[in-house]
Structures are given as structure tokens and as C-alpha cells.
Computed example of a mutant assay.
Amino acid sequence: MRVSGVDIVIQKSERKTVSIFIERDGTVSARVPEKLSDDEIRDIIKAKEYQIFKNLAEWTQLNENAVKREYVNGQSFLYLGRNYRLKLVDEKLEGIQFKRNTFLLSKTDKNKAKELFVTFYKDKLNSKIHPIIERYKNQLGVEPNQIKVMELQNRWASCTPNGNVNFHWKCAMAPIDVLHYIIVHELVHLIHNNHTQAFWNEVDKVLPNYQEQVNWLKINGVGMSL
């Protein structure tokens, strides 16, 4: 749907309110109640026009800090909130190695460096999230069905209606405190499948400083890329 010159992806679901989001790639999406007609949706979005353009301006400003990474000696890559340099080496290695605060990559593997970095992040994230999930699922009294690390496009994580919890492999780039927040956020969705005040109250009970992590993602999320 195009409103005021902006293309908006409409997602209908069993909800009572309209929420508008600027996705990480700059697209605009609106999650709306199924019962609303196109004209009603258009009128509601039109009323939120100022909010949409304000958020788009913020997105543009934040994305001025986007990092274009190349797989060359000295290029920095994020891991658990810190930047570490890449070093190309002559010897043959099994994928990306992380030793002495340096990423190591065989020169012969440079052409598949991105693929190898994704594998590295997936492996590391899988090893990090399960102990954290165990801690918080007991605190919240929830039990995820399946837990996966995968490509999630513009989301850091997701919780499916059947209780599966998925995490973007890029979460391995975030500081450990931010990773805790992302995990708690999705586990709370097993209790509240929306972002009502009850949802945020539950998050706040577990992580009273969660807004700091939200702000970190807002400012630094654009740099969590390959």
C-alpha cells in the first residue's frame, strides 16, 4: 500500500491495534487487525504520517554510519560487541579462526569469506544462547519448542505461534548484555505474543535496564553486517 509517497507493507493478524515499523533495511511495515478495510488502514496510516517520516529520518541518519566491510588485512569485524581485525594467512585453515583477538582466514578461502564468517557466527551463537535460554526460561516459566540460529532478514529474532524461537546469526556480533535482552524479548513472547504494556512489564521484571540494550541496537544495529 502506498500512502503519502511511502510504500508500506501491510501485515494483517489477530491484533487490536495498528503498529508501524521501520525495518532494518529502511522499508516501512504496518501490522494491523484483520478486520480493517483498506480504506480504514489508509486513514490510520495517514494519521501517523508525522511519526513515519520522523522515524524514516532517524533511520537515514543512523544508516550514515553503515560499515562496508571488505575481506582484506586489517578490516574489522564485530564479535560480541567489539571489533577485531582480520588477518589473511598462507596456511590452510578450517573456516574462520579466532585467535589472540584476531580473525584468521586462509588466503585461498578469500572468495568464500562471507560464507565462512556466517558459519563462524552461527556456531558461536549456538554455543552462547543455550545457557542463557536455560537461565531465563526457568525464571519466566516458559519452554521453547525448537531453538534455531538462522537468516532472519530484518529481524534480530522471532517467536513462532507454535513456540519455536529463532535468532539471527548476526546476534553473535552484539555485546553479551544485548544478547541477553534479545533472548528475554523472545522468551517473553511465549507469554505475550504482542508488544502490549503487559509484554514490556514482563521484560522489565527480568531486565530492568533493557532500554539501554534497545538503544544499543538502535544505534549500532546498522553496523552488525558483513
Rank of each mutant, 00 (worst) to 15 (best):
N215I: 06
E58N: 09
A113Q: 10
N145G: 07
V203F: 02
H195E: 13
N55D: 07
V89K: 09
V32P: 03
Y71N: 04
N126K: 07
V118C: 11
D177A: 13
N83L: 14
V89L: 11
Y181S: 01
K48C: 04
R155Y: 10
S127I: 05
K205R: 13
N145A: 09
N164W: 03
K99F: 06
T160W: 05
S225V: 15
E151M: 15
I219L: 03
I20F: 04
I8L: 03
I8V: 01
L190M: 13
Y121W: 11
V149F: 01
P175S: 13
P131C: 01
R42G: 10
Q213M: 09
K16I: 03
T196E: 14
I44V: 11
G5C: 07
E64M: 09
K124R: 10
M224G: 02
T27G: 13
N73Y: 05
V6I: 12
A57L: 10
T17P: 15
D109C: 09
S127M: 11
G74C: 03
Y210V: 06
I191C: 10
F199L: 07
T17Y: 02
L152N: 03
V165N: 00
P33G: 05
H192C: 11
R2A: 10
A30V: 01
N154A: 02
C171A: 07
N201R: 12
R100D: 15
T102K: 14
S13Y: 09
I183S: 08
H168Q: 10
G5W: 05
L116M: 08
V118H: 06
D177G: 07
M1T: 00
N162T: 12
V214Y: 04
G163E: 05
V6W: 07
V203H: 00
R135Y: 10
K87C: 15
W59K: 04
N138W: 03
P161R: 01
E202Y: 04
S76G: 05
R155E: 12
S13M: 14
Q197G: 13
V188N: 04
P208E: 08
D123F: 12
A198W: 12
V32D: 08
E49G: 14
T196K: 14
V214F: 00
P208I: 05
T196N: 12
Q139Y: 12
D90F: 09
K114D: 15
H130A: 08
R82C: 11
Q213G: 01
M173V: 00
N220W: 00
N111C: 13
F167L: 14
V18R: 05
I10F: 05
L104R: 04
I176C: 08
R2K: 07
T17F: 07
